[in-house]
Each structure stands twice: as C-alpha cells, then as structure tokens.
Design a protein around this nucleic acid. Structure first.
Length: 271
DNA sequence: ATGGTAGGTACCCTA
C-alpha cells in the first residue's frame, strides 16, 4: 500500500488543465499540491478537476497572483489557509489526509515561498526582504509548533535552490536570487526548525544534478539545460523510513502550453 | 552586459 503526492507550480491553473490531465495519467497521485493557481476561489475550475478524479479540493486563491490548492482523491480534513508577513497573499494551505491504514493521517502543507525579485540585497529590494522575512517567520512558527501532532509533509515552490547540484552553475548563480548564501542559510534554518527531511535529496542523492524549473526565456530549454531545483518535498522524521521513490516529470516542460516548473511526485510506503 | 518569455490584468505587474 502506497501513498503518493505531487507538487506542481502550474503558473495559472486555468492555462494548465490539459497539463493536469497529463500529470494524472502519468502519475495518478493520491494528492496534488498546486502553486501559482492565479485565480480567485469562486473562479477555480473545480468541476473540471472533480471530473479528473479529484473531488476533494482545498483552495486559497486571489486575483492575478500567487494562489495555492490541494486536490485529493480522498477527503481533506480541516483545510486551513495561513498568511505570513501580515499579507493576505495566498501562499500556504494545509489539510489533513488519511493516507491509508498503514500510514494513517498525514498533515499536508502546500507552500509558495516568495520569489524575491532580482536585486540580491534586502536593503535595496523589498521583495527580497519579504522573502527572507517569510522564511524567518516560517522557521519560528515551525519551531514553536514543535513535534506534536501527526506526521507532516511540506511541499511546494520554495524558490530556493540550496545545493550546488540544484543549479546548472553554482559560479554563475551564487549572486542570483534563488541561490544566494543568505537565502540558503534562511532555508536551512527553516528546515532545521521543523526537523524536515529533504525527501528528494534523500532518494536522489546529494551530488546528482536535479532540476524542477527551466526559464521560459531560454530558446531551447532542454539543450541549454540551465535548470534549478526550486520545488521541494520535505517530510517529518517519522516518514523518513517510508520514502520509496521520487519522480521529476521532466517531459512536462514540453507540454503545450507548459509551466516553467515540472511536477514532482513522492511515493511513501511501509514496504 | 543585456534581454529574453509567460500569465493575468488593464495599459504594467510578477515571475
């Protein structure tokens, strides 16, 4: 018995309904976490997604920007949006889900961390300051929350590529937002605060290049392969021994029309 | 060093 969960930054759910169908055909996950849905809740395409086999939907959206959603084959328990840095910007949603008799109830968190703009200096760039404050606030929240409660999964577009193997060129990107030292340190503090295990790296290994995002601006994204691992799947320590497989659906980058992020699917199992 | 593309929105923002 396995439980599988996908994370995908769709860059507009309304532009990605065909892609969502392809994802479901390819991976058939139990739960799907979406970021950058870019739609208000009353316009969310819930009927289309119900007919794809995901009638249980928790959504937290706004007009034009951001937006997160959790889609599930099985009921979602007490879904709750969270807001950070005194903004109402729809970047975090969590819900309980029954992952089967063996795994029991899991708490699934879908997260979209701010991108942070272009200038890698929080004093000159308020978007980067917001990103760092967001990471810091999250870290304090998880630390205060402690270890009680069910096992947890934290997935989404974290907009940070912490390892050398997470970027196409460490030298070229070390001063580029997503791979600067200050945000890598802030992400590490967040990881430590919740005792999170990086499930992708646990399964893939630390050294193997692994990317989940390729810019729209590259002419031939696959040949240039200037990718970054911006999307992450973290689990609480009790789930570490159940990590079975991770799949980065690279082919999704060629679906028409593509998101610049590809879906990542994690499988958990007792055996 | 620069500009390249995509999406939503409303003539510009964010990524």
């Amino acid at each position: 018995m396995t439980f599988s969960i996908t994370t995908w930054n769709v860059n507009s759910i309304r532009m990605r309904l065909d892609g969502l169908k392809h994802l479901i055909e390819a991976e058939n996950p139990d739960v799907i976490c979406l970021q950058e849905t870019k739609v208000q809740d009353h316009l969310f395409p819930k009927d289309d997604i119900t007919s794809m086999g995901y009638p249980h939907q928790a959504i937290s959206g706004m007009k034009g920007y951001n937006g997160v959603a959790i889609l599930s084959k099985v009921p979602l328990i007490d879904p709750e949006p969270l807001h950070w840095c005194e903004k109402e910007d729809c970047r975090h949603l969590f819900a309980g889900v029954n992952a089967g008799d063996e795994l029991g109830e899991l708490e699934v968190h879908c997260l979209y961390i701010p991108a942070g703009g272009d200038i890698p200096d929080p004093l000159k760039n308020p978007k980067f300051a917001h990103k760092l404050a967001f990471l810091d606030e999250q870290a304090h929240w998880w630390a205060a929350r402690g270890e009680q409660g069910p096992e947890r999964v934290l997935v989404g577009d974290f907009n940070v590529a912490p390892l050398i193997s997470d970027v196409w060129s460490h030298a070229r990107l070390k001063n580029v937002i997503t791979h600067t030292e200050i945000e890598i340190i802030a992400l590490a503090a967040l990881q430590k605060s919740g005792h999170w295990v990086d499930a992708m790296r646990h399964l893939i290994g630390e050294e193997v290049p692994a990317y989940t995002w390729w810019s729209y601006r590259a002419k031939d994204w696959e040949t240039a392969n200037k990718g970054r691992r911006l999307d992450h799947m973290w689990v609480s320590p009790g789930l570490k021994s159940l990590l079975k497989n991770v799949s980065i659906l690279k082919e999704a980058r060629d679906w028409a029309p593509p998101s610049d992020h590809v879906p990542v699917t994690l499988c958990l199992s007792q055996k």
